[in-house]
Structures are given as C-alpha cells and as structure tokens.
Design a protein around this nucleic acid. Structure first.
Lengths: 259, 259
DNA sequence: CCTCCAAAAAATGTGCACATTTGCTGCGCA
DNA sequence: TGCGCAGCAAATGTGCACATTTTTTGGAGG
C-alpha cells in the first residue's frame, strides 16, 4: 500500500517522509558499498527518473548528503562522489587510531568481567568467520569489534564519531581496495582484549596502534577499480519501482547486485 | 553592488549563494552565543520576514542546521533549539576528555620545542587575559588551548570533531551557565604543557582528565537563564537589510555587516 | 469549570514554472 | 589545423501556488 502514487493530476503536495528516507538510504548504501565511481557525478534529472520521484526530492537528499560530507557539492555544478586522496585515507585511519587510544584509556577504568566476556564472545565470532572463510562476515565483524569498544563507554558522541569514520573508511576501502586477504587479524583484536583484561593501558594502546598501522599499510593507491559508470545499473536493485527498460547488461563490473 | 534585489517583479530565480551563507551564519552565531532560548521554536515565516529573504531560503538553512544536529527538526512541526539535558552535557565533556587523552597520547610522539614554545606563548596570552580580568578573552583562549592541542596533530577529522564538541558545549554552557569565575584554570593548562614537554603521557592524561572533571563539576542545572524569546530582538543586529522598525539600538553586538 | 471536539488559522511540505548558470558543439577566421 | 567565440542544450537554483498537517480558537455538552 501507499507505494504507487504521485504524478497524478497536478497539485500533489502529499507528505511522504518515508520516500525521502528510502532515496537517502539507497544512495547512501550505494556509496558505502562502493558501487559509485570515485569522481562520478550525481545529476538530479537521471536520479529523479531512476527513483521515480520529483527532482526536488532528489535535490533535498543530495544536499543532505553534502552536509554530511558524503558527497561533494559544488555550487551550480551539482553533486559528485568525493575522490579521497591517500592523505585523506591516512587522516581517517589516524583519527581512528587516536580516538581508540583515548577510548582504551577511558575503558581500562571501567573494565569488568562482563565486558571482557562480551568482547571474547565477539572474538569467537570473528574466529569462526575467519575459519570458515567468510570474507564478508570477517570484514563486518572486524569493524564491529571497534564499535564494541567505543559503545562500551556508552557515549553517544564518541559512537557517532566512530560511525562517521567507519563509513568514510568503508568508501575509501572500496577505492584503495585492501581486500587481499586476512582483513583484520583476529589475534590483534585478541591482544587488545587481553591487555584490557590486564588493565594495561600502555600495552592496549600500543597493540591498537600497531594494529591500525598494520591495516593501514595494506592500502595501495594504484589499481583503482572504476566501479560502474551507469547510474541506472548502480541503482537497479535498489528501487524496483517500475520503468526499467534500460538494459542493465552484462557490464556488472562490481559485485553481484545481491537479492 | 548586487545586494539589494529580490521581490521585484515576479520570476526572480537569481542565484545568491552569499545570502544563504549570511543567514546560516547569523542563526548559527545566535545559537553559539546562546541568544536563543533552549526549547525555542524557529518558525519559517518570521525568520523569512526578519532576514528579508524568501521562506525557501530559510527552510534550506534550517534543514542544513538540522543535518548538523545544531537544530532539532521534527517532521511537519518545524525546527527547535535543542534542549540539552545534563546527561548530554556530561556526554560532550566526556567525549572531549576521551578525545584529548587520545590526542595527548599521539602528541607525545611528535612534541618538539617549537610546539612547546607555541603552547607556552598561548599560555602567556591566557595569563594576560586572566590578569587583566578580561572574561570574554579568557573563555575564548581557554577553548583555543584545546584546539591548539588537536591542531598540532594536523588531522582534519580530529579537528572537526573537536570543533563540533566545542560548539555543542558552548551552547550548553549558555544554558547551564558555569560562568562563576576563573573559568578555566590556566595552571591546569600549564601542567598539561609541562607534562608534554617531559614526554610523560600518563601525567599529561591524568592532568587533562582532572582538568575536565574540574570544569565539569562547575555545571549546575538549576537557574536556567531564559534568553530572549523574541526572534526579532535576537536577530536585530544580524541583518540590517531594511524593514527593521524594531529599534536596533546601540546593541551592535556583532561585527560590521561588511561593505 | 473543565473537557472535548469541530472549524479556522497558521505553518510545513511539495510540485512546477521559470531564471540563471554551466558545458558543449560547431562555425568562422587567422 | 587550431583557436576562439557565439549560440544552444542541459542542469542547477529559486520563487510561488497550492496540499497537507499541525495548532489554535470557540463553543457545546457534561
């Protein structure tokens, strides 16, 4: 219900906040999945056509993404997918490293058995995923570990900041593709937990730092996978509204459009 | 030239990006200065009238401020100045504390004489302001000290995060008014610099933590200054466009309206 | 006197018609 | 051949006219 309206008659200012959110999530998702080329332009008319909504709707979403620094907005020239430099990537990784140092410092003051148990349970999950060779799960759980650390502090500001950093690094990862193998050594995570359990701040920070530098060293700037150029193909699976005559051929340069 | 147009004729879609920015800055400034009541509603029509711009312009700015979490946007119900709880304040202070712990940890790896000199120069300014009893300068310099610390790392992400925290806390400060006296003990800042010079991470962090707890303890939630209720009065000095029959007395709180 | 409800008033949200700006294409001229 | 530049097509930005929703108002009934 309530999914097939608009463009009837003329005056039609019906409120539909869910639709804004849907378009926003679709574009954000494509961005986070790395389905969009680094310097790609996101023009309003094509997107409006693809999602079957008015241009104003698209425009609002685009500006919101721009305000969140997820898109690069140039006055009178539209929105583009940011093209992060290697320095940008290092900056994000360094920020994460610094943040985690602070988090660990604060965390040793509040460690209890329950926290250690939760972290160990998470490590078990990570090991299981690694053992069974589930790359997707490994990547997800690897990021989740650091999220667990901040969330243990229960501070909304810090959690938000980390989420911001992670979303940015995920985009970069898709550009500088570090996905060779063994994404995030579980042992290093385990060492952090161990240091936490021992209340050893210095060691926890040292291990964490080592861990980040390790991950960071895997980045390589050459060999940039171009991702898809065609917006219609990118959003093919996102909004099965209707009006899908544009082939979506065997191009499929990226991953599978899943489900 | 080009500052006195609009509302002539009818079709008038002229681009004026500077005007967006001006309105944005005006509202943001009022927000940061604490001129707006905590739960105050920012309705579009009055603001449009006050600034002498179209409602769409106001709407865009309001949504942008909402995306930045500086305003609380409720669908179909407009924008309100957020009413931070005491927990919110503590959360921001804790985040700042945790962040600075990480910053200090990273900073001891890069301290050099030049940095220490710069920080000492800043401390001298702080002491001078304190000695001469300049409260405004003291507050400003006190915040600037922590900004100097992060900026010494040269990391844009971290700097942005701190700026975000500071802007939030400045709003809160205006609510929970900690301005009794001796806002930020210069000695505590000096102790941080001293620990940095000695490359003593643990001490630097301990002093910093102590410092933040000290500042935080000054907050009191009762006695909330209501600030102004009337939007026209709040923005009186901000936009001397015209159509301002509301006095605009010797207030002149801000800067010159340029050119 | 208080509560509840209907109708009006005000405020927010949206599509649309342009104005403006950008980008491009092709023609002329050195 | 190459360099500019006029004109055109496409995209972005903006005001405006409504539609929808919220809030206020003014009674009627308990």
């Amino acid at each position: 219900m309530a999914t097939q309206r608009r463009r009837n008659g003329k005056g039609n200012g019906k409120a539909n906040p869910a639709e804004d959110e849907a378009v926003y999530q679709a574009i954000l998702h494509a961005l986070l999945e790395g389905k969009l080329k680094a310097g790609a332009k996101l023009a309003e008319p094509p997107l409006a056509e693809i999602f079957g909504v008015s241009r104003e709707r698209i425009r609002k979403v685009l500006h919101r993404l721009g305000a969140e620094r997820r898109l690069e907005m140039i006055p009178n020239r539209g929105a583009r997918v940011p093209r992060p430099t290697l320095d940008d990537v290092r900056s994000v990784y360094e920020a994460h490293r610094v943040l985690e140092a602070g988090v660990l410092t604060q965390l040793v003051r509040h460690v209890d058995d329950a926290l250690i148990d939760r972290l160990n349970a998470h490590l078990a999950e990570e090991r299981a995923a690694a053992t069974r060779g589930d790359r997707a799960a490994s990547v997800r759980l690897s990021g989740a570990f650091h999220v667990h650390l901040v969330e243990a502090l229960g501070n909304a500001e810090l959690s938000r900041f980390l989420a911001d950093l992670l979303s940015r690094s995920s985009v970069m990862v898709s550009v500088y593709e570090p996905a060779t193998d063994s994404i995030c050594a579980v042992d290093e995570h385990g060492a952090i937990v161990e240091a936490l359990r021992a209340r050893d701040v210095a060691r926890a920070i040292a291990v964490s730092r080592e861990h980040f530098l390790h991950v960071e060293s895997r980045l390589h700037l050459d060999d940039v996978v171009p991702a898809s150029e065609d917006l219609t193909a990118v959003f093919a699976a996102e909004k099965p509204k209707r009006r899908r005559h544009a082939v979506v051929p065997a191009k499929a340069g990226t991953h599978n459009p899943r489900e």
